[in-house]
Amino acid sequence: MIYHSIRMKAKAGVTPQQVEEALESMREHGRVVPAVRTYVVGRDHGGDFDWGGVFVIEDLDGYWEYLTHPAHARTDRIGMPLVERYESFDITDDGDPDLGAKIADLHRRRYEADPELAALVGTPTRS
């Protein structure tokens, strides 16, 4: 299993309504992306972040489905303009020592296929 985690700190001036719209979009992609086994979205306690989410995905095929699903892209487009900073990381019980590199490659492929999204999240694409 892969536990995909996101932590976010809202920009100054972001309204509670904007935050709730972004969080509801995260919940929606948790509900509608078939690869998501379970999820939680809510307040982040234990660091310098305001909000977060964890999405449990079975394997790399499911991770790719999650990354490329239109509901996930919608969440990025709603939420990223509201975020001062964010942290995304994965925890897994998979024994593959190359899994981290494989996950990074999925992210790279996603951003290469969608340069607008890459610019929105601050991820450079290769030329």
Rank of each mutant, 00 (worst) to 15 (best):
E20K: 08
K11G: 00
E84S: 02
D105P: 00
S25Q: 14
V41H: 06
Y39N: 12
A73D: 06
E65Y: 09
L106P: 05
Q17R: 10
A113E: 15
L99V: 06
V19T: 10
P81S: 11
Y66W: 15
A104R: 10
D98S: 04
E58C: 10
P34F: 01
T123F: 09
D105N: 06
R43G: 06
R27W: 09
E58Y: 12
V54W: 15
A118E: 01
L67K: 15
L23H: 12
A104F: 08
A104K: 09
W51M: 15
E84N: 03
W64K: 15
R109N: 10
E21H: 01
G79H: 07
R37P: 00
G30D: 12
S5K: 09
E84C: 00
D94L: 10
A101V: 00
H45K: 07
V19Q: 14
V14Y: 15
K102C: 01
E20D: 14
E21N: 03
Y86T: 03
E58Q: 13
V19A: 06
A113G: 11
H29R: 04
F89N: 02
P34C: 02
A104D: 09
F55E: 11
H107K: 04
L120A: 05
G52T: 04
D90P: 04
I57G: 08
V14S: 10
H72T: 03
I57S: 05
L117T: 00
D105Q: 10
E24S: 10
T15M: 12
D105R: 08
R110V: 10
H4Y: 14
M26W: 12
I6V: 02
E28L: 00
M80N: 12
G62Q: 06
A12P: 01
G47A: 08
D59S: 05
L99E: 14
R31S: 13
P81H: 04
Y66A: 13
S88R: 11
H29L: 03
I57P: 08
A35F: 01
L117A: 03
P34S: 07
H72A: 09
D114Y: 02
Q17P: 03
H45C: 08
D48W: 07
R37M: 08
E24I: 01
L67V: 12
M8N: 09
G47K: 13
G52Y: 11
D61F: 12
L67E: 04
L106D: 05
V19D: 08
E87W: 11
P34W: 01
E84D: 03
L23W: 15
D98Y: 00
L82V: 02
A119G: 13
G122V: 00
A118D: 01
D96P: 02
G52S: 06
A35P: 06
P16W: 14
I6F: 04
R126T: 08
